[in-house]
Design a protein around this nucleic acid. Structure first.
Lengths: 183, 183
DNA sequence: CCTAGCATGTAACCAGTTACATGATTCA
DNA sequence: TGAATCATGTAACTGGTTACATGCTAGG
């Protein structure tokens, strides 16, 4: 359901193709809302059928024709309605690594520790990515579009990613310490 | 896919019904892996078909008969194989509220602030739950089962929940401050 | 020469949600 | 009297993944 609004959200900044939208997602919402091209294309079709956007075909040679989507007033209204919505409950975020940790009690100590250390390396890489690539991308988009108000929100969500990874790394460090000492 | 291992994981502590399993999930893994009864029942059926567990029917009157599942050696082996698995990439956790924040730049300042404050109340309630209900439940399970080694891991995942909510609340506070001052 | 990027999509499948169906007991 | 708990499940649907199909261009 939220993919629809992700696409409409990006379309408010200007007309885009499915391929463009995927690149925008990869550089920004990927870590809290991601989708594959094979899901994006049918969703765009549905958006057009519902009158939330219209498409224009730009012929190309050697490549498939580009299909550019333009948001309609109805699409803008639908996005605003969604933005104004309040959830009454927090939605549980799934994390299979926490699940694995939860049931890891039956494994050998060293086995658990190897697991946690491996996971930590992945988290550190992700933290680094938020602090470099993602940060640079947001800076560039601000320069290119001049959307200052939006930029505040984009930077805030980037910082969430950064703080989430930092919290995760601290938790992993503490977990490793505790298991080394008490297991 | 992970629901299968969630169910097998709980079944290693003893024979349980689908209904029992849901209660265990609600008290522990719910915040990083949840499922409805309508998904649990067919998954248990699949687990039995694959030979990972066997079921015994206990007749009752006035209620549907209880169907108790018992994990098999094949089931234990499957769980251990999964526990030993390493993911090569971190999986993006979906969060529609972050997505809403990402696209909230077009809304009025007060509108965004109301949203963030509302979200904060939900997060504080969840934090409190981890610090009371969830903590008490783990204590009780340790008393009842004496699974000390497992208890270390359960307590660690509970602490993750606590630290996650604390991080989220801090982020929301900072976001509110920033928007009040700079928007 | 091979990989990555550009650019579209479909088909089959798996995971998960919502709604429906049944019905007794207990507690506020 | 009505909601919650116990206890099972099915059917229809939506969301999301994997695999397949096509084919050119640019760069290392």
């Amino acid at each position: 359901m939220s993919l629809k609004y992700t696409l409409l959200g990006f379309l408010t900044y200007g007309p885009l193709t499915g391929y463009d939208l995927k690149k925008h997602i990869n550089n920004s919402t990927k870590f809290f809302w991601d989708a594959k091209l094979s899901q994006i294309y049918p969703t765009l079709k549905k958006i057009e059928n519902d009158g939330l956007a219209v498409s224009e075909v730009m012929p190309q040679n050697g490549k498939p024709d580009k299909k550019i989507y333009i948001i309609t007033d109805k699409g803008r209204a639908a996005l605003l309605a969604w933005l104004g919505d309040f959830p009454k409950e927090i939605t549980a975020t799934k994390d299979s690594e926490l699940l694995r940790s939860f049931f890891a009690g039956s494994l050998e100590k060293e086995n658990i520790l190897t697991h946690l250390r491996h996971h930590m390396a992945l988290r550190q890489a992700q933290l680094h990515k938020y602090q470099t690539e993602t940060k640079d991308y947001i800076k560039q988009v601000i320069i290119d579009t001049g959307l200052e108000r939006e930029a505040i929100m984009w930077e805030l969500t980037r910082r969430f990613g950064e703080q989430y990874e930092q919290m995760y790394i601290t938790w992993l460090e503490d977990a490793i310490q505790l298991i080394e000492d008490e297991m």
